[in-house]
């Protein structure tokens, strides 16, 4: 079933082709990319900021930068989603730091309620994104608690390795090892699907 859904969802134009279109000022290309990734980008921003209005502003700003800075995207340095989500995360972390509101609250993978995608132009895209998300969250749940804690504090709360070591009162070397093992295990779990 998974294979079938993914096959049905194969995009007609790759992200790279669409980005070439954006460089040529084709707003339709940007729209396809928006429909493909905006929900995931909002998920990232919302998880960091925990406030929908600000998170939606971040998503809009992210795609505006995609439009304005499309020529700086280089597919040899990484795939489009990595570039896009890095931009989303950095904008959201900057906003979080501006608020100076880092809180030591526990990280809850399910804190942002899932919603039915009522406005996605491509329902299959949305279904596929949801499935991908569930797969990654299941993989993260299989990490040990200390490993999970380290990578989520870094990625979603914007803490540096030193800040994480201080917060968890662990030596920096221990934090480094946990992060490395967590990323290796995640890769193994996800590629083993």
């Amino acid at each position: 079933m998974l294979g079938r859904v993914v096959m049905m969802n194969l995009p007609e134009r790759s992200d790279e082709e669409l980005m070439s279109g954006v460089v040529r000022r084709e707003s339709a290309a940007l729209e396809i990319l928006y429909d493909r990734y905006a929900a995931s980008a909002l998920g990232v921003a919302l998880k960091i900021l925990r406030e929908r209005a600000s998170a939606e502003d971040i998503v809009q700003e992210t795609f505006w930068r995609v439009w304005k800075s499309a020529a700086t995207f280089d597919s040899r340095r990484g795939a489009f989603p990595s570039w896009l989500f890095a931009m989303t995360r950095n904008l959201a972390i900057d906003e979080l730091r501006r608020r100076a509101a880092r809180q030591a609250s526990d990280i809850d993978l399910d804190d942002a309620a899932s919603e039915i995608p009522d406005c996605a132009s491509d329902v299959m895209d949305a279904v596929w994104t949801q499935m991908q998300s569930e797969r990654v969250r299941e993989a993260i749940q299989q990490l040990s608690e200390p490993q999970r804690q380290v990578i989520l504090l870094a990625y979603f709360q914007g803490l540096t390795r030193q800040e994480i070591a201080e917060r968890l009162q662990e030596p920096a070397g221990t934090i480094h090892t946990r992060a490395r093992l967590a990323l290796q295990k995640l890769k193994t779990l996800l590629s083993g699907e």
Binding site: G43, V59, D118, T129, Q130
Partner: peptide, 17 residues
């Protein structure tokens, strides 16, 4: 390690704006 890190954005539930 890149593959593991690239998966992290998907740890957040997608929410249609």
């Amino acid at each position: 390690l890149r593959g593991g890190a690239q998966a992290l954005p998907y740890a957040a539930r997608p929410i249609p704006p």
